[in-house]
């Protein structure tokens, strides 16, 4: 019986609340997808994919807490470290279309 299973308000437990919060972040990610698709410039897309990555780290951390599986935080850590790689790869690519690699 961890803190995740304790009732919070109106019969909802803390875990369910965290899951709803994660769902809200996914909805935000869908909104951010508009910027990634529409652009109009590549810088917009780089920024959008960076925000999406940070968003995903939050979602994964919330899932790890809600499912009370601390080892799931490893995935969030991997994303936090590698999302940076994705961001610098795309941003360096947008300059001169990879000419400065």
């Amino acid at each position: 019986m961890s803190v995740v299973d304790t009732a919070l308000v109106a019969g909802y437990t803390v875990g369910e609340f965290l899951l709803f919060a994660a769902a809200g972040f996914v909805v935000l990610a869908i909104g951010m997808l508009y910027r990634a698709v529409k652009g109009p410039t590549m810088q917009d897309r780089v920024l959008a994919v960076n925000v999406l990555g940070t968003n995903t780290v939050v979602i994964l951390a919330l899932l790890a807490a809600a499912l009370s599986e601390p080892t799931f935080l490893d995935i969030a850590l991997v994303y936090a470290l590698l999302n940076f790689l994705m961001a610098i790869a795309i941003s360096k690519f947008t300059v001169e279309r990879g000419g400065v690699l």
């Binding site: 990634a36 897309r45 959008a48 994919v49 990555g53 995903t56 979602i59 994303y79 795309i90």
Partner: peptide, 17 residues
């Protein structure tokens, strides 16, 4: 193609979650 690659990165974020 670059936009497709970027959105594919976003796809992997959703799949991992």
């Amino acid at each position: 193609v670059l936009a497709a690659v970027i959105v594919f990165g976003a796809y992997s974020l959703g799949m991992a979650a």
